[in-house]
Design a protein around this nucleic acid. Structure first.
Lengths: 104, 104
DNA sequence: TACTTTAATGTCAGATCCGACATAAATTTG
DNA sequence: CAAATTTATGTCGGATCTGACATTAAAGTA
């Protein structure tokens, strides 16, 4: 099943650059996952730079610890939408997010 | 109601830069909407550059004409997620999308 | 080591989103 | 102008996402 495949891929410890070439994912799926992982990384970096636990960060963005963990893991159950809204909520600008994509 | 307010704002012909200051939206809501409108604009530009009708474009991205119209209008019922996946589906790279954000 | 804090994983009900359809409005074309 | 094409708007069932909770695993501390 496709979702399972994705999950496996995402949680298996791939670094941001290399999710691409592995299994039968379409190019757009690969790109989507890479983008998500790049945002996940940014999210974690921002949280840590504020010296917040996942629980504290969750409170800040009106979410829950478990969902923050899933965001940072690039879990299939979280959307880019939520990640971007979370970044906005802690003051990261679209321009800064743009840089994340340029790196992806 | 908040959603209605958003809809009104988005469909009232605001240009990309100035959704910000109007009604009782939180800064992150404003940023979210601005980002969405920037993506909407990009989506329309890409579609037109390919000389495709919304219907033809929809077929290309496995969606429907009505949803494409809503995407290009920045309708509250569409997410940034869908817009980005649509852009990926027609070959726009994350880097190119990054530029869109830098402009937002 | 035991204790504390933090992070990861699974699940679920309610909320939101999506494609599709119908239909109306607008635009283009002949 | 009328016909054809394209775009806009409203709605809805099914699919997906979200916050919350429970539980476990891991990391830090005394």
């Amino acid at each position: 099943m496709k979702t399972a495949k994705r999950k496996k891929l995402e949680t298996a410890g791939w670094s941001v650059g290399d999710a691409a070439d592995v299994l039968g994912l379409t190019p757009e799926e690969e790109t989507y996952i890479e983008t998500k992982l790049a945002l996940a990384k940014k999210l974690k970096a921002v949280r840590q730079s504020h010296k917040l636990s996942q629980a504290a960060f969750a409170k800040r963005i009106h979410s829950s610890q478990s969902r923050v963990a899933k965001m940072e893991a690039g879990d299939p159950s979280v959307t880019i939408d939520l990640m971007m809204r979370s970044l906005f909520a802690v003051g990261v600008s679209p321009k800064q997010i743009g840089k994340v994509f340029s790196t992806a």
